[in-house]
């Protein structure tokens, strides 16, 4: 085809990716808004390896070209992710939008990416010369800057099979559908023997990339609920102090106030 390649296998796709100046195309929902002229697309939607969801001992593995609609209907996908997917735009966008595309677009407003941050997801990046497994946090180098080589494709997103059950997710958009996140929050708490063994609190749409303050998260780790309650004020004020938001269409003051309240709602949900 003119200005495009539609490979049937991943190997074929990687060969084209290595040899040509192509833009990987999964769902098109972001790319076609830009509608750059003279661009050559590498269409990924017909590649079976990228279209499947599989589960191994530890991970739910979602192919980069799996659409949000497909994942939403798959009960193997963690519920926190499906909550986020349900809030993305509207059916026609979810029918096209993909996990790989949401990552590849590099926006900090991508709702699936927020959950990937909260779950410490890993990405499997592949090229003709092999593959790399990269934590999602390291994949984002800065605003619209990704650790993706020009011969690589995102193949899979690896989400933990368990450990996400205690979660709080909320998206705040400008209306009830067809809304880009103004703030989105995903928090996960893992308890063992009445103690918090892991906590993540991720904020979307507030900075150049999804934000997590690892030091602050650590303030509650190792604590019982009662101890966490006692440390709550310091925990929240740490976020108040350290959460730095970039300017946007919607004021930073507003978004920050919402971030702090959602963080509080997350704690409240688990009795903290």
């Amino acid at each position: 085809m003119v200005n495009g390649f539609a490979p049937a296998t991943l190997q074929e796709a990687l060969a084209i990716r290595a040899a040509q100046d192509v833009t990987p195309y999964a769902g098109g929902t972001d790319l076609m808004v830009e509608n750059r002229r003279g661009v050559s697309y590498l269409f990924l939607s017909k590649i079976p390896e990228l279209r499947q969801i599989t589960v191994d001992d530890t991970c739910v593995r979602i192919g980069a070209a799996v659409t949000f609609t497909e994942a939403l209907a798959d009960e193997r996908v963690p519920q926190i992710m499906r909550d986020a997917l349900a809030g993305i735009a509207a059916p026609a966008i979810r029918n096209a939008g993909t996990f790989g595309g949401n990552l590849g677009n590099g926006s900090a407003k991508a709702d699936s990416v927020l959950v990937e941050f909260a779950l410490d997801a890993k990405l499997r990046l592949v090229s003709l010369s092999g593959e790399r497994i990269v934590p999602v946090e390291q994949f984002y180098l800065g605003r619209k800057k990704l650790d993706l080589h020009s011969d690589e494709l995102i193949a899979e997103i690896l989400l933990p099979k368990t450990g996400w059950e205690n979660y709080y997710y909320e998206k705040v958009g400008g209306r009830n559908a067809l809304a880009i996140s103004r703030v989105a929050f995903a928090g996960v708490l893992r308890m063992e023997n009445d103690r918090i063994v892991d906590l993540s609190a991720a904020f979307g749409a507030v900075a150049d990339t999804v934000l997590r303050l690892k030091d602050a998260e650590g303030m509650l780790i190792g604590k019982t609920v009662a101890e966490a309650k006692a440390a709550k004020e310091a925990f929240l004020s740490r976020y108040e102090q350290d959460l730095t938001l970039t300017r946007g269409r919607v004021s930073a003051e507003y978004r920050k106030a919402v971030c702090l309240r959602l963080l509080q709602a997350f704690l409240e949900k688990f009795g903290i």
């Binding site: 495009g4 929902t29 076609m32 697309y41 939607s45 966008i93």
Partner: peptide
């Protein structure tokens, strides 16, 4: 949405 679909797809 056909505005967001490239022909190759």
């Amino acid at each position: 949405n056909s505005c967001c679909v490239a022909m190759g797809a």
